[in-house]
Simulated scan of single mutants.
Amino acid sequence: MSSQKAPLQRSRLLTQVGFFVLFTLTPLFDLFRYDLTERHAYILTYPWHLGIDDLLAGGNGQTAAVNILLYLFLPLLGLAALIIGIAWKWGRLYCGWLCPHFSVVETLNRLMQTASGKHSVWDKHATPPWEPDGRPARRDRRYWLLVVPAALGFAFLWAVVGLTYLMPPFQVYHGLLTGTLYRGEVIFLVAATTVLSLEFLFARHLFCRFGCALGLFQSFAWMVNKKAMVVGFERDRLLDCADCMGGHGSACDAVCPMRLKPRNIKRWMFACTQCAQCVSACASSNQHNPDGQLLHWVSGDAAKRNEAGFSALSQRDEDAGARR
């Protein structure tokens, strides 16, 4: 990538690594988890009770209902409102900048692309043999020896971390080190590792696009706001963008980890994670272009004009096709 845009992707990588570490360590310090053995949650090291013990013992149901409202539904609604509010204005920033699953998606994409020239086993065509800045893209089939172990390793890590959100973390790690895990813990780890390994290898993009409830709700919120931040495209310079990789397509199409076409209208970019890899790639491929790059983040009225221009361009193309 060009020096102009590299800092953006470096910053994103740092936030992803930091959040992945937080995701892993959160149960260890009781920052957030639900303990099945103690039957209550921990939040910021404090036990989180719903206050329904009296109800379970045959006591006052009204008090329990108030406690459930105050200690369960209101916090969940507040968290949901925060996530949806951010998505309404800026899109799926959580997915592209924080989500531990998306970090795995991008890591496996890079390994698989080096091994095969494709981000996914389902891609029909290989990506260009050059990086956006013109450097030869690395291709080495020996990387297949890393793809499968990496998927298995990430799956096992996710399974272990997921278990520590439900069982005492130090008990889980001690059981792993000494081989004294409980039968239920072993079943959980085997099942979760198997399912996640298959998902990481074959369906990671499909899960992000169609299977993740958090991602879908963010996308719906983003689609509602016509002024939300979106990748804008300078339509008047379409010829400069059509084939910036010298006969091998466009750089922005090649780098999108969600396998989208970044120059499309917003409704076809429903699953965009705002990772800005397309923007960075455009900057790299146009680093010697005196007119600069064609893709930019835009918001507000500029986002509305961008969408209106796309719609007009699409209608013009449809009309031209009908006349032909």
Rank of each mutant, 00 (worst) to 15 (best):
Q4H: 08
S11H: 06
R12H: 09
R12F: 03
T15F: 07
G18K: 06
L22F: 13
E38R: 14
A41V: 01
Y42R: 07
Y42E: 10
I43M: 09
H49Q: 09
T63L: 12
T63G: 14
A65K: 00
A65Q: 09
F73I: 14
L76C: 07
L82D: 00
G85I: 02
W88V: 01
W90I: 05
Y94F: 15
Y94D: 03
H101Q: 07
V105H: 10
T107E: 04
N109M: 14
L111P: 01
M112S: 14
S120T: 13
T127E: 11
W130Y: 15
R138D: 13
R141C: 05
R141N: 09
A155T: 03
W158A: 10
T164W: 02
T164H: 03
Y165M: 03
V172K: 08
I187V: 14
T194Q: 06
T194K: 03
V195W: 01
L196K: 03
L201Q: 06
F202N: 05
A203R: 03
H205Y: 03
C208P: 00
C212K: 00
G215S: 12
L216R: 09
Q218S: 10
K226P: 01
K227S: 14
A228M: 03
V231W: 00
F233A: 05
G249W: 08
V255E: 10
C256Q: 04
R263A: 14
K266M: 10
M269L: 13
A276V: 05
C278M: 01
A281M: 05
A281I: 01
A281G: 02
Q287E: 12
N289L: 07
P290F: 05
P290I: 09
P290D: 12
D291C: 04
Q293M: 06
Q293P: 05
W297K: 10
V298C: 10
N306C: 07
E307Y: 06
A308N: 14
F310H: 15
S311M: 15
L313V: 08
R316V: 01
D317A: 13
G321R: 15
R324Q: 15
